[in-house]
Design a protein around this nucleic acid. Structure first.
Lengths: 227, 227, 227, 227
DNA sequence: CATGAATGAGTATTCATTCAT
DNA sequence: AATGAATGAATACTCATTCAT
């Protein structure tokens, strides 16, 4: 890479004024921004309406963020930091599959607590976005990747994981399961997709526990050592 | 279901004039539309620029499609039909894991042949989109779900698959792997994500064969019957 | 005036082809054009929709008329000619007030038979229209003015009309009554206006005979000689 | 009437921002809007050009009025209110014919002071217009009708007016004379029409006083009591 | 600091007119 | 002569951003 690694990780997307204002005001702005961007996507979200919904003036908003894009990036930035913190709570020493299951439940909880974040990530992924957005999101994945690395290391050391497993490919596949699992609790589209693929009939609802168990079971059978 | 199944499947998103024009012109328009929508998302794509890039006049474009949204829907519609046709070529009678591997390779090929389609699907998923878009995309998943159903049926009948496997949950998990695998070959974001998770160093490239093998192996260990 | 008098009176607004086609087709085009222009005004009327409603192709329409404006002018031209012919049927020799009453009834009948014509006249009057339109309409008024001139001449000669009446001013005032009387049977706005001014209650309808009688009576008292 | 009287009379056609701006700016916008709508009619008037002529930005214009139609309605609304105020100044107690003559002179003055208003009224009358426009204009006529009602009442009471006169029909006819009189000083078309009907030769100009006298004389002879 | 009025480039869409078939 | 697909300038309206108060 030609850029300094982590260069954008340290970039600030808000102006200094934003640090100084009332924390509630700050939280409100981010909350509204998150909701708006999630609901309509970056392009379709209007800064003026967003400011109105947040109860502040356009002028103020522009004194906190230099541009619409910066606000978007700030939301992603803060979001990925929040999720990153959650992930950091997982202790790989607790055992591979326990950690993995814990990751799944955290994903499940995040989908409820920050329902819009996934939508925004998808957006940052899709659009022509400055690509900075994508790189920002990737930061979160770096955290996750590091967790897997330590999980596999510990797992192989303790004999929980087969020694011949390619940790990289395995981590990629497992996280794919986690990501799609999380999506299934975020947007309508992925909710419907889950219903269709699992063959759920109209009244029924998915049983979270069974789904988590199924995924953990896949992980165990795929990469676990035979006793 | 209360709606007639396939009700929107039969809806036409283009005007009759579009059927009558030169196939090359038709293809060009769809190709450009696909590229533009994929690159910038629905909202950020401009109809006027799109028309210019496709080498036709704005007026013509509007004589083929009643609105920007209809053009978008048409692209999704045609895309999902194309992908659906590819998937239909898979014969579940060939054996569960052979079929699954075949599905993976088809996903891999589709990512190369229609690199933008995945981006557009993501978009149709994300935005406030008329929800019609999302339902259109779901049509493709109905096809896939049906394929899995028959694969599991045949797999259990032949003894390839453990009889106690929950076909619905298993199909959902397996397809999640397929979808994310496909994404990893589509957009930059997901490409980077794969590199990060698998721990690829800068020069290296992913080995498709090993990744496919890894996924199929997961499937086999997770759901295959022991010999 | 620098223009030859009547120069635009002899101008043709349609192309030669229009003379050669099937009279029914010709009539249909004019009928539809009249209805459309009357309903929406010149600017808001669309040539393409007009052609479709008339059951002919745009190409044909443009082979009959060089432009939208020419079609509009042709409609006015033909309309004013039609009305002019009706007016010419009145014979001033029948007596002033008999002629005047006859004019009123003709106006009344015209409002029923060509309900759109008045609307179009108003339009040709209002808009930035090439002013040619206005001059076209004025042609009709020249005919009317001439009728009044002969009516007053005969009226004064026969002693029906007071000799001291200023024929010009009188003609202007009387025709104003006729024109507004005719409007009152054409568009909704003027219908409502009549109801409001006459104090008609909701169920009631105006009694044409009484209104005509009232107007003729005004004329007689204003300009008639005492016996 | 089923609708609440004055329901649309209380509707506001401008946004609150319009009330707050510099009165000169406000007046300029209305003046230009009036001129443009009068000259070209509603459809043919372009908002962008109108804004430029008024010396304000398009964005500002749209922050004052939600749409082109609202601007049009605002112009009519304000115009009819202005004219209504003028008419209210007439005191029926001054005598029937004095009041009527006063009305004529007010019409004459209005034609000079607000030359475009009549054109706009004609427009609001003609087109497919939201019909709201027409109803707005009718408000003005309600005011006029009420004036006539009181004039006739007072006139009959004082013996100025023949007791057998049908006040409604008479008011309608008299106001028709007023309206056409006013028009004759507004647009080119009606100016020409007057010249043609009165038989004015090219150099001559109409003598306002004689015309007013002629009309008042008609009124007096038609409805006045013989001494 | 906060405000929100002002800006004007940009957007989707329409429609009079042309012209190849 | 008749067709109607093609054209693109023009239109009403939006919205990110600026800046005077």
């Amino acid at each position: 890479m030609s850029d300094e690694p982590g260069a954008e990780g340290t970039r600030k997307f808000h102006r200094n004024t934003f640090d100084r204002i009332d924390p509630e005001r700050r939280a409100m702005i981010l909350r509204v921004a998150m909701a708006e961007f999630a609901a309509k996507g970056f392009s379709a979200t209007g800064i003026n309406e967003l400011a109105r919904k947040a109860g502040i003036s356009i002028g103020s908003l522009y004194s906190y963020f230099a541009s619409k894009e910066d606000l978007f990036l700030a939301v992603i930035d803060i979001g990925s930091e929040t999720l990153g913190r959650e992930i950091s709570e997982i202790d790989p020493a607790a055992g591979f599959f326990a950690s993995f299951e814990s990751l799944l439940w955290k994903a499940r909880a995040a989908a409820d607590r920050y329902p819009e974040l996934n939508q925004i990530y998808l957006d940052s992924t899709t659009q022509g976005m400055s690509s900075l957005a994508a790189r920002l999101s990737n930061r979160l994945e770096a955290v996750t990747a590091e967790l897997y690395r330590r999980m596999f290391e510990a797992g192989k050391a303790s004999g929980e994981i087969r020694p011949d497993v390619d940790s990289g490919l395995a981590a990629f596949c497992l996280d794919n399961l986690v990501v799609m699992f999380q999506f299934a609790y975020s947007g309508d589209y992925y909710k419907d997709r889950m219903r269709i693929m699992t063959g759920l009939s109209d009244g029924e609802d998915i049983d979270d526990g069974r789904l988590v168990a199924c995924i953990v079971d896949m992980a165990r059978r795929s990469f676990g050592a035979r006793p």
